Structure formats: structure tokens, C-alpha cells
Amino acid sequence: MSSLPVSVPIWSPHCLATFSSLKPSFPSCFGQSRHTASPMTAWIVLPVSLSAFSITGIWIVYAMAVMNHHVCPVENWSYNVTCTEEIARPGFPKTCCTIQDIPLISKCGSFPPESCLFSLIGNVGAFMVVMVCLLRYAQVIEHSHRCWINTSALVSGCTNALGLVMVGNFQVDHAKSLHYVGAGVTFPAGLLFVCLQCVLTYRVAVTALDYWMAHVRVALAAGALVSLVLSGIFFIHESFVLQHAAAICEWVFTVDILVFYGTFTYEFGTVTNDTMMVGLQQTHHHSGVMMGGAAGAMTLGMGAKGLKSPGGSSTSTHLNCTPESIAML
């Protein structure tokens, strides 16, 4: 007969002493390793994907619209009041253009099949924008910077995403009012978001590289501001040339904002599980959701600690110390 394995009592002096002191050796009593908040470097893919997917997508939409004779190419500056019906030549752009053929981004995505891709880009891009805004919001809080600027940046970023959904799903030639409402929301909200993020970048900057990134973002924000203002000024004129210039400025603004979102790759390499928890807990706190039990204790621990120690997670460990929970282990 084989001998039964001898089990070590859970109330052994070694385990009890270790449990009471809450030292890192505690989990070794149960054959478990201690959880550490290692950087989730996979998050660096999110900002890059947002920029690459959106910029590539809108240029594909533009190319499809040009080839399908729905808009004129951006290098065309000659427009007519009216045009006679011309025979479409596959693979060649239109030769006679009117003001309806100006290659505004919204105009490029007005008709199928490119309108389908345009809606997809708007919806997917809006989702990724919200994810970037939430992670950045939590990351700034994690560095003990709880301020109205960070909250305003989160609100403006989510508003920008809402406007993107409206722009992408309500085409300008089929639902003009809703489309213009979406454009009137997403452009100013996007500009406000990048401006607030410039301020936050300076606030949390520590190294020379951090300040260099802040300077780059200021340059991008300045370019976005100038291009948006010029686009609005040119758009209200009836001149064909100025309308075409407004379209170019709109393209510059959109690409500029998307490149700005891509720069968050610099910070997202340090996102950890604790960063995610900070964002979720703060979101629940502001929405009035009461978190109890261990989650509430973790919220208090996060709020007291604020700034993580380099390369690790928060040092506060909250455990349920009742005998029943130990017996379950």
C-alpha cells in the first residue's frame, strides 16, 4: 500500500508569521507568485494603429472617390460653373469639375462604395480614440496629477469620438444637417484635446526627452490650429480657389490630429494593470458608482499612493485576513 502524502497544516508557524507580516514571501506558503504590475507594452500598438489605420483609410477613400468620378483630384485647381455630361474613363479622374467636385474629406465619403469604408473608418477610429483618451487620462492620474485639465481633455476627446461617429455615418449629401453638426463638434473638440494634452505633457515631463515630446506636440497643435482657422475662413467664400484651399487645409488638419494621437506611443509603453484600474475606478467615482469591499480598499490605496514606484506596482496590498478565506486556499 502506498503511503498517503503528508500535508503541511495551513496554520503552520512559518505561514502564520509570514501572513501576519504581509511580506512578499507570503505567497510562497501557497505555491503562488506575487502579482507585479509589469508594463503592458502591447498598448503602444493602439496609438500607432489609430494613426496608420485612419490616415491610410481616408486616403484610400479619396482614391476611390477620384477613380469613381465622385470628386476631382486635389491637384486640380480649375473649376467650371457647369459641366456637360462626360463619358467616364475607367482609371482616369474627371476632366470637367464643378464646385460639387471639390475633394473635401466628407465629400470623398458621400457615395458608395467609398462611403461604406468611410463609415467603417469613422466608427473604428472613434472607438480607438476613446481608448486612447481613457488610457491617457488614467496615466496622468497615476502620476498624481488630478486636475480639471485632465478631466477636460478626457471629455473633449470623447466628444471628438462622438463627432467622428456622426461624420462617418451621416454623409454630407444625404444627411447634411447631422453631418455638419458632427463636423462642428469633432473639429473643435479635437483641437481642444490636443491643446490640453500639450499642457499635460509639460506638467508630467521629467526627462529631457519628455520635454522634447512636449515641444513636438506644441508644433503639431499649432499646425492644427492654423489649418482649422484657415479652412473655416476659406470655406465660407464662394470662390472656387478658396473652396479648394479649404479642402486642402481640412486634409492637413485631419492628418495633423491623427499624427498627434500617434505620439502617445511614447507614453503607452509604461501602461500597466494598475493604470487600467486607476482609469476604471476614477470613471466609476465620477459617475457616482460606489465601489465596496476589496475594490473600494484598492481605490483608497491607489489614491493615497498616486505615483507608482519605478518598475513596480503600488506597494499597498489589501488581503482578506479572515480564517475562512485562508481555509479556502
Rank of each mutant, 00 (worst) to 15 (best):
Met1Leu: 14
Ser7Glu: 13
Val8Tyr: 14
Pro9Arg: 05
Ala17Lys: 08
Lys23Pro: 00
Pro27Ala: 14
Pro27Ile: 09
Cys29Gly: 13
Phe30Pro: 04
Arg34Ala: 03
Arg34Thr: 04
Met40Glu: 14
Met40Val: 09
Ile44Ala: 11
Val45Asp: 07
Val45Tyr: 15
Leu50Gly: 01
Thr56Gln: 11
Ile58Met: 09
Val61Tyr: 04
Ala63Phe: 08
Ser78Pro: 02
Asn80Val: 09
Glu85Lys: 13
Ile87Leu: 10
Ala88Gly: 09
Arg89Gly: 12
Phe92Gly: 06
Phe92Lys: 08
Cys97Ser: 15
Gln100Pro: 00
Gln100Cys: 05
Ile102Gln: 00
Cys108Val: 06
Gly109Leu: 10
Ser110Phe: 06
Pro113Val: 04
Phe118Gln: 02
Ser119Asn: 11
Ser119Asp: 12
Ile121Gly: 01
Gly122Asp: 00
Gly125Ala: 12
Met131Arg: 09
Tyr137Cys: 01
Val140Arg: 00
His143Glu: 11
Cys147Arg: 09
Ile149Asn: 05
Asn150Phe: 10
Ala153Leu: 07
Leu154Phe: 07
Ala161Glu: 12
Gly163Asp: 04
Gln171Arg: 10
Val172Phe: 02
Lys176Val: 03
His179Ile: 07
Thr186Phe: 01
Phe187Ala: 07
Gly190Ile: 03
Leu191Ala: 13
Leu192His: 00
Phe193Val: 02
Val194Pro: 00
Arg203Ile: 06
Leu209Lys: 04
Tyr211Ala: 00
Arg217Ser: 02
Ala221Pro: 03
Gly223Gln: 13
Ser231Leu: 06
Gly232Asn: 12
Ala246Val: 09
Ala246Cys: 14
Ile248His: 04
Trp251Asn: 01
Leu258Asp: 11
Val259Ile: 12
Tyr261Cys: 02
Gly262Ala: 11
Thr263Trp: 08
Thr265Asp: 07
Tyr266Ala: 11
Gly269Ile: 14
Thr272Tyr: 13
Leu280Cys: 12
Gly288Ile: 09
Met290His: 01
Ala295Lys: 04
Gly296Asp: 08
Met302Leu: 15
Gly303Phe: 09
Ala304Asn: 07
Ser309His: 12
Pro310Gln: 08
Ser313Trp: 11
Ser314Gln: 07
Ser316Arg: 13
Ile326Asp: 06
Ala327His: 15
Leu329Ile: 11
